[in-house]
């Protein structure tokens, strides 16, 4: 009796958790299913839970829209954002551990607040500034604006990892004459490399979905990322091609989902390592 009860208890956790997960993932399932529905099927009520006339809308989408162009723009923008963000953010996180003082606290507080500023609001002043700098309708404008938004985020996530490096390690290195760039490059950076990789992945994935700044600053078709293309090509105000949007979406999303599933456990630990003590 008691063993039966224990098995029940053992199973209750995974079953409950699994059901909740399935319920939560339903929109993703619905997304893939819809992308496979036929042109008549999509307007049918009740909606089919499984495509009855499976259609490869992907082929139609590839023929209709310049998918490769959109995806390469998304990749260019995401690469630019993550490189610029990490390039400035990693060094700043380290510096904010090494340098102490009252004004450092002020910088940290400012950084926390900067991270909260909504992109949709920052787009307005940045639009006027970029216009004066002749940067409108360039992918560089999107990269700069989005990086200014994510550098504070990197500092918040990464600084705790630098803080965890034992003082003795740093002191020992300093005794050996290892300071400045070399201390960072050969001692500190290798110790936080895993966090840097995880945060890089996180920033890249978010940048891959960047929408607000691209929508605000870009207008040449050849420069738009897939996030904007998804709306302009298939989800306009007057004409909506649901299966087309979903099919385009699967091309856009699937590579990211595959990477995500591969690294999700590390992502969780990287996200929470600093924020919760």
């Amino acid at each position: 009796m008691s063993t039966a009860f224990q098995t029940h208890r053992k199973l209750a956790g995974p079953i409950l958790a699994g059901l909740l997960l399935l319920l939560f993932l339903f929109p993703i399932y619905w997304f893939y299913i819809t992308s496979l529905k036929g042109p008549k099927e999509i307007d049918r009520f009740p909606p089919a839970l499984w495509p009855e006339e499976p259609t490869l809308n992907i082929l139609r989408v590839i023929a209709e829209a310049n998918v490769a162009q959109y995806l390469s723009n998304s990749l260019i923008i995401a690469t630019g954002i993550s490189l610029l963000t990490m390039g400035l953010g990693v060094g700043a996180s380290w510096a904010l551990v090494r340098i102490r003082g009252k004004w450092i606290d002020a910088i940290l507080i400012t950084i926390v607040v900067l991270q909260m500023l909504p992109a949709a609001l920052m787009a307005t002043p940045l639009y006027v500034i970029f216009s004066n700098l002749f940067l409108l309708d360039t992918r560089a404008a999107v990269v700069i604006a989005a990086s200014a938004k994510s550098i504070p985020f990197v500092i918040i996530l990464l600084r705790p990892s630098f803080l965890k490096i034992p003082k003795e390690v740093i002191e020992a290195a300093a005794v050996d004459g290892c300071t400045g760039w070399r201390l960072f490059r050969f001692i500190a950076f290798p110790l936080v490399r895993n966090s840097v990789i995880i945060i890089f992945a996180l920033i890249f994935m978010q940048a891959y979905g960047e929408y607000v700044f691209s929508r605000s600053f870009l207008n040449s078709d050849g420069k738009l990322p897939a996030s904007v293309g998804l709306v302009t090509e298939f989800f306009g105000q007057y004409e909506r091609d649901v299966t087309g949007a979903m099919a385009f979406g699967t091309i856009y999303l699937t590579p990211m989902l595959v990477v995500f599933v591969a690294i999700q456990r590390k992502l969780v630990s990287g996200l929470t390592a600093g924020a919760v003590k």
Partner: peptide, 16 residues
């Protein structure tokens, strides 16, 4: 796996 909603481009989430 719950984090999937976090990494999905939000504009795509809206369309879903």
């Amino acid at each position: 796996l719950f984090l999937v909603s976090w990494i999905t481009p939000q504009i795509a989430v809206g369309i879903i």
